[in-house]
Design a protein around this nucleic acid. Structure first.
Length: 872
RNA sequence: GCGAGCUUGGCGGAAUGGUAGACGCACGAGACUUAAAAUCUCGAGUCCUAAAAGGACGUGCGGGUUCGAGUCCCGCAGCUCGCACCA
């Protein structure tokens, strides 16, 4: 490379690592555990990654966006906490162990090292001293402490629950791992099995989790709506139906069935009672009736398959049992086991009112059960109104309903509840869809649940002084099931309470537990306690949380629950963990297939004007849909390869350009090359400013038009970029920076005019500072060239726009006739309306078209528009 | 089925009810060069029309409000996402 090249070519390879070292040396991104007084704090957090082995473009986009916010806020004078860590427990590590014989720990730590390196090459302003990995005892030991505190506070339960059991792998599967009733790995028919499991009592906070949503003003509406529905509050009544004439030999303790309903006023329209296949009463029936037993077993099998739910036909089986009606002492109704009744919701039983509920109607039609209309819609006649194929679920007037007749639904609802309460068989209740959170997993690579099971003392918490319960490393993966359970010695301990031989819990926590409090741990990542109050309370809530929409429900809800539980157990004193949430879109890419239908990697494909061909063979390639980058479609682009070719700033600039961050973007070769050209262009332009304009170039009193124009462009850009960044419109900020860059380049032509040298220096310096959040390395390089030996760009304040230069000196006014643009005129800002109107009317084209027309109205919106309304 | 969102040039997209298409990508023309790359300049919604002036049409479709609608209101279609028998 010649000396000349160093002035015209930006050598990102050396420059980027150099500035990363400078930042590190200066400790620019380091903040103390206790937020410093006298400066406002700002906590920026991106969802931490699972260490799968390679950073992908989705991460780059996520973290680039977060880094823009972090660097921008830092420049605005905030003390910014911006940490990074690893969601490091999880099944892929165990799969790697089984498939390739690598130990999960080794695999995970190697992946972390590789991904950390890529992250660091991208130059994110992260406080690396705070790095945590959830798979290290330092982290999960504190999690065990939290769990024990929750246990003491009554926020934990142990109870039996149904799980999907894979009989081949000897493991429990999540619902999404069960495909068509079969295990996703083993292909074995999945069984429903009851296991004793640990539950976190999230339902205890259901009302508060719902109410809290209202305070989350800076969350996307749709995420709030999703959570609201997930929590699922509904008002209604619970009531007991007594079993009429239980058959001989039936359990005498089971003399009634409790149901939940939101429509107690429709009780008179009842024609059957339905219970879930998993309902205890169904089990009783199945025990004496083989037909029922077969039906229940079948429902249980079907229940897990997604397909089954979608195509679900309503099916049921009459148990032969009957219940009495609370308001009609002489009437009894059949009890059915029905496949559409969920044991998980309400009481697992319902009364069917076919006229008022479509499902009940479908069921009634199928099994020929009576349908009685009880709600008369407005405008219908009671004598002729009937329900045929469509249930009426709306409001109306009660009919055929005894003492409720003539009332509105709402009044009748209240009255029905009052009557049930009077009879002592029911009451108004609020029901929640939210279930307690089962956290037990029969896995090795997770946080051990710190409990010891003793035959005499039951489940005994591991004493604090024995924490952390460390995962043993000498485990084997040569047979199915949980390696912790197979370990020869690990689980054999003595009971902390009575000292007798006892067994360790071999289940580990759901990995969602790990990510439910990491944001709090980041505030004091090396503390001996899970949190340090002053640190957690000082930094939390996270001011801006950024991540994918896929975590809209579970992760965010669990984190909100954990925060409340931690508050209740004294670990912190905030209620909502994330004050602002931003969900960014995905990174998509074209997909390619060869003639044999095999997916091809982008680097195997040559795109020409006549279509796409294979680089090696020259064969035609089919260009498929633009879709989410995924390994299976091979439409991925590796960030490290992009950094090698174009540098970190180019990669960052490209993912931030064009598409609004909340929307999906398409990664294209041309796009990233274009970003790379811009990096070089900006570098050249600023270098020419350094060469042309001396650092002491002064602002003359009589600045030339060219100089003034550039200065105004500079200050307008400051305002526009600031506004765009405040609103997350990074793509708009990028556009404004392109414009200023072009304006600066144009000014070179007027280099000799008065004040242009000053204006060019000002523009170049401003531009460097404004691009810094997106392209921090280039910003440092530019600023160092402009102002050698001064402070780092990363430490500088955000530029301020001079209001005097934001004021418009001349306005370009549109002139319309009947709302159609017919010409433009120039005007002084806030010029006398009469003069403006006169000039508008005289504009040649306007005058021509107004000829012979009668103007009935002249509209003048100062500094914006003139519109003439003419008579027709 | 329920809910949310989206729909603007060849493409990504911009636009407090006030000149639609900023900015970028791709494309075309030109300059520089022996040549290419790089770079720079210019052009470009569609049509009347090859160009200019001018005009017509134009932000998924149909209505409405308004002097004026991509933007607000009503209805419809298409696409995407989420939840999905929640009693």
């Amino acid at each position: 490379m010649t000396a000349d090249d160093t002035l015209t070519h930006y050598d990102f390879r050396n420059v980027e690592s150099h500035w990363q070292e400078e930042w590190e040396k200066a400790g620019v991104f380091t903040v103390p555990d206790i937020p410093p007084a006298g400066k406002p704090k700002y906590y920026v957090l991106e969802m931490f990654p699972y260490p799968s082995g390679q950073l992908h473009m989705g991460h780059v986009r996520n973290y680039a966006l977060g880094d823009v916010i972090a660097r921008y806020k830092r420049a605005r004078g905030f003390s910014v906490l911006h940490p990074m860590g690893w969601d490091a427990f999880g099944l892929p590590a165990e799969n790697a162990a089984r498939e390739r014989g690598v130990h999960p720990k080794e695999w995970t730590l190697a992946n972390i090292a590789a991904m950390r390196e890529t992250l660091q090459r991208l130059g994110f302003s992260l406080n690396w001293d705070r790095e945590i990995a959830t798979c290290l005892p330092d982290y999960y030991g504190k999690q065990q402490k939290l769990f024990l505190d929750f246990l003491k506070a009554g926020l934990v339960d142990r109870r039996e629950s149904w799980v999907n059991w894979d009989p081949v792998d000897h493991t429990v599967l999540a619902n999404e791992q069960v495909v068509d009733g079969k295990g996703w790995r083993s292909g074995a028919l999945i069984e429903k099995k009851k296991l004793s499991q640990w539950f976190l009592r999230i339902t205890k906070f259901a009302p508060d989790l719902l109410d809290g949503l209202k305070t989350l003003k800076r969350w996307p509406d749709r995420v709030r709506v999703m959570q609201e529905r997930w929590i699922g509050r509904s008002e209604g009544a619970r009531l007991r139906f007594s079993l009429a004439q239980p058959p001989h030999g039936f359990d005498e303790n089971l003399d009634s069935v409790e149901v939940f309903t939101t429509r107690p006023e429709t009780l008179f329209g009842m024609s059957f009672l339905a219970i879930a296949p998993d309902h205890p009463l169904a089990a009783k029936v199945a025990a004496r009736n083989t037909e029922a037993a077969a039906f229940v077993a079948e429902c249980r099998r079907m229940g897990t398959s997604v397909e089954a739910v979608e195509t679900a036909e309503k099916r049921g089986l009459d148990t032969g049992l009957r219940v009495s009606h609370p308001f009609l002492p002489d009437a009894t109704f059949p009890v059915w086991i029905a496949n559409f009744v969920l044991m998980d919701y309400g009481t697992g039983a319902l009364f069917g009112c076919p006229s008022g509920d479509q499902r009940d109607l479908d069921f009634a039609r199928k099994y020929d059960l009576p349908v009685k209309a009880v709600v008369l819609p407005a405008g219908e006649d009671a004598a002729s109104f009937g329900i045929t194929k469509k249930a009426w679920t709306g409001e109306g007037t009660m009919i055929n309903s005894g003492f409720l007749d003539g009332e509105t639904c709402e009044a009748a609802r209240k009255e029905a509840i009052a009557r049930l309460e009077g009879l002592g068989i029911g009451s108004g209740v609020v029901n929640w869809r939210l279930r307690d959170w089962g956290v037990s997993r029969q896995r090795y690579w997770g946080c051990p649940i710190p409990v010891i099971h003793c035959e005499s003392c039951g489940a005994v918490p591991v004493p604090d002084d024995q924490l952390p319960v460390v995962l043993p490393e000498d485990v084997t993966f040569d047979r199915p099931g949980n390696p912790l359970d197979h370990h020869p010695t690990w689980k054999h301990v003595s009971c902390p309470s009575c000292g007798k031989p006892a067994l360790r819990e071999t289940d580990t926590f759901d990995t969602f537990v790990d990510s439910s409090w990491y944001f709090a741990r980041f505030t004091a990542p090396h503390a001996d306690t899970p949190t340090v109050r002053a640190a957690a309370d000082g930094w939390l809530a996270v001011d801006q949380y950024i991540g994918g929409i896929e975590h809209a429900i579970l992760h965010l809800l669990y984190a909100r629950f954990f925060t409340r539980a931690m508050r209740e157990t004294g670990h912190l004193d905030v209620t909502e963990p994330f004050a602002g949430l931003f969900t960014q879109g995905m990174v998509n890419h074209e997909s390619y297939k060869d003639s044999d239908g095999n997916w091809l990697y982008p680097e195997e494909v040559e795109r020409g004007s006549s279509g796409a061909t294979h680089r090696g063979t020259g064969n035609a390639v089919t260009v498929g849909r633009v879709e989410k980058m995924s390994k299976s479609k091979r439409n991925t682009v590796a960030p490290s390869a992009i950094i090698d070719r174009f540098g970190a700033d180019t990669a960052r600039w490209f993912v931030l350009s064009d598409s609004p961050p909340e929307r999906d973007m398409e990664w294209t070769e041309a796009g990233v090359a274009g970003a790379g050209r811009f990096v070089q262009r900006l570098f050249r332009i600023v270098r020419s400013v350094v060469a042309d304009c001396t650092a002491d170039a002064a602002l003359p009193d009589d600045i030339s038009t060219a100089g003034d124009t550039l200065r105004r462009a500079t200050h307008r850009t400051i305002a526009a970029v600031t506004e765009a960044l405040e609103g997350f419109a990074v793509n708009v900020a990028v556009a404004r920076l392109h414009e200023l860059t072009s304006a600066l380049a144009d000014a070179e032509r007027s280099a000799k005019e008065a004040g242009v040298a000053f204006a060019r220096r000002e523009a170049a310096r401003t531009l460097s500072l404004l691009v810094a959040p997106m392209m921090p390395h280039l910003a440092e390089e530019l600023l160092a060239a402009l102002e050698p030996g001064q402070s780092l760009a990363a430490e500088r304040s955000w530029p301020e726009a001079d209001p005097a230069l934001l004021a418009v000196t001349q306005v370009h006014l549109a002139v319309q006739i009947m709302g159609k643009l017919r010409g433009t005129i120039e005007a002084e800002p806030d010029e006398d309306p009469a003069a403006v109107l006169a000039r508008a009317e005289a504009e040649p084209n306007v005058a021509r078209l107004l000829e012979g027309q009668r103007i009935v109205k002249r509209i003048h919106v100062p500094n914006r528009i003139v519109n003439f309304v003419v008579a027709k």
